[in-house]
Amino acid sequence: MDLLEFRKITQQIRVNIIEMVAAAGTGHPGGSLSIVDILTVLYFDKMRLRVEEPKWEERDRFILSKGHAAPGLYAVLAERGFFPKKTLMTLRKFNSILQGHPDMKNTPGVDMSSGSLGQGLSVANGMALSGKLDAKDYRVYVMVGDGEIQEGQIWEAIMTAAHYKLDNVTMFVDHNGLQINGPNDRVMGIKPIKEKLLAFGWYVMEIDGHTMQEISEAIDKAKMLKGKPTAIIAKTVKGKGVSFMENQVDWHGVAPNQEQKHQAIAELEGTL
């Protein structure tokens, strides 16, 4: 994937997120837009997968622990070909395969149901332990939000991953700095994230979560690191790509109206 291709794909995915959330009239655009670039590098370049065989046993796994960013995941999966793109417009609607939060029983390509925060890393560890027991070389990726690491279970799982030396686990922290009630620092301080993870026995990298090359290199490096799990703290912008959504906490869980939708899409399409 070259940079131009990456930009085209991520632009299309962002447009799709805006359109699907607007069509649903409900959903979480802010945190969906912040993870697009990482998910694109994973699903279009780094992850071993078979679109025609979503449950292929040898595949790399991905868990969206911050499940409310489901539109971001769905848009990536559709763009990658796991299901038709027109399905995106059924987001959150009755009988849709695209539930409000990821549902592994309903959506091709979704490896784990999520939505209740704090649970994804434990599940990733279970998948990674199974892989180690079976001497399989698949990798497990998990995306947590920065606000999400306020959940105690995350730190239990951080201990487990280190204890069992799960170097097949890579955890992204989508560090956009905002959660529903405001900046993390004001709601419940989580800093210093890097030092905490280091103290818990992880490899830690800090990257810009919107730069293809940095994301790509971090993933490659994590594959080479042995004996410990790797955390990639990705500095991101909530609402990335849409000027009036960027860094605006109120766009956490609000859908754009028609006018806002058109403005957002015009902006996104103008950036290429």
Binding site: M112, S122, V123, M127, G152, A157
Partner: peptide, 10 residues
């Protein structure tokens, strides 16, 4: 809590 989640992944 972590035990149950790990079991789910397994």
């Amino acid at each position: 809590q972590d035990m149950i989640g790990t079991a789910a992944g397994l």
